[in-house]
Design a protein around this nucleic acid. Structure first.
Lengths: 208, 208
DNA sequence: ATGATTATATACCGGACAGTAGAAAATGAC
DNA sequence: GTCATTTTCTACTGTCCGGTATATAATCAT
């Protein structure tokens, strides 16, 4: 492991933590979109002056890409963690959709999903954004598939359970929940969507 | 019916058809997003000068809303029409997802869906956009539900078939296909997603 | 302390963009 | 033909926005 107390890098130390700054940039992009979020607003929200943003993160597109990464690592991953941490598949799937519900409902941040509702808009004009979107989608589906596969190996799912198919469907239904939330769906509707999704993903899993 | 050959409205007649102009605005918003589409580009694509756009449609937000309506009436409705026009439910659902595949694949226009991938971005900051999005989602789901209900009444679906639930799922999976396409998914992946969706919607419908 | 180095703050620049005057063109009314 | 009316074209405006130059502050090295 590298020595964390290594010599400070010589000049004036920066007055902010990059990850904290990205955390504060997330809701701005989330609410306003990529083009709608201007650097003045971002600078204020992040608590970092504009020149420091450019020095630390690069231009607006680079900042957005790093914000996407930070979002994936802190917010987007929560449903996957809930699934992985659960004691069994059934409760894990339910927990994952509960986490999705919380993510997209607007309680913490804005409604919808930074990837599904904001990055998707820019994906057609910005290849780097499209790449991250594709990678995130693939990674999500793989992670879910791996969890379901493990559950099947533990005997929680029938031998013929279509693991990969349900992993893809679970990914799709989480994104669809984000869109419903973005359109202003009430919390009850979102909860119903989550319940439906759980049933669909687990259909045929011993008593579905 | 109103006389179509009524007296022309007095002044200089406009040199463009509003619906045609909206048809040509659709791909611009579709590809570039609301904020990314500037009025210069829109004006050129529509073949209508900027002042005429403002005179005919109002400001940029009003233009976008009318473009959304036109999109819904010409592009977004195609899967629903395919479902409604099919001889039976099974082939109708397959035809609807085939139409969705065509819509989102980028063959005509851009990848993804103007509602799911573009309007969603602006929905958080523009209440009118959010309203249209919610209305479109609700209308789509209702229309699908009505079709499935009719099919069930004709005996093509079992008595206990969860019509409303499957209508919601079908709506969700069409939107998820749009997101996959927007992220750059290959045509084969999209086709697989469509096949999965058909199976999921029809599961339990006599031989699913 | 002095200088090298890196970060921050203020203030600014050039360009792009939404929206609009104002003049000119095309029609109906008479 | 002439006037009123509506559209269209050219050119413009004020503003906002991404990005930066310049000066200053805070640290390390010696």
């Amino acid at each position: 492991m590298v020595d964390k107390s290594a010599h400070r890098p010589r000049g004036r130390p920066r007055g902010f933590d990059p990850d904290d700054a990205l955390d504060r940039a997330i809701p701005v992009f989330w609410r306003l979109g990529y083009e709608g979020a201007d650097l003045e607003t971002l600078s204020e929200a992040m608590g970092v002056g504009k020149p420091s943003i450019y020095a630390a993160f690069g231009d607006k597109e680079a900042l957005f890409l790093q914000t996407m990464d930070r979002y994936a690592a802190t917010v987007g991953c929560r449903p996957l963690q809930a699934l992985a941490d659960a004691p069994d598949i059934a409760s894990g799937v339910a927990a994952a959709f509960a986490a999705t519900l919380h993510n997209v409902s607007g309680a913490g941040g804005a409604r919808g999903c930074l990837a599904a509702c904001v990055a998707a808009d820019s994906a057609e004009a910005m290849p780097a954004v499209r790449g991250r979107l594709a990678a995130g989608l693939e990674a999500t589906q793989q992670a879910i598939g791996a969890c379901l596969e493990r559950g099947r190996a533990r005997g929680e799912l029938p031998a013929g359970f279509p693991v990969q198919e349900r992993a893809a469907m679970m990914t799709d239904l989480m994104h669809a929940m984000a869109l419903r939330a973005r359109s202003g769906a009430e919390c009850g509707d979102l909860r119903a969507a989550a319940d439906r999704a759980v049933r669909a993903v687990l259909a045929g899993a011993e008593g579905g």
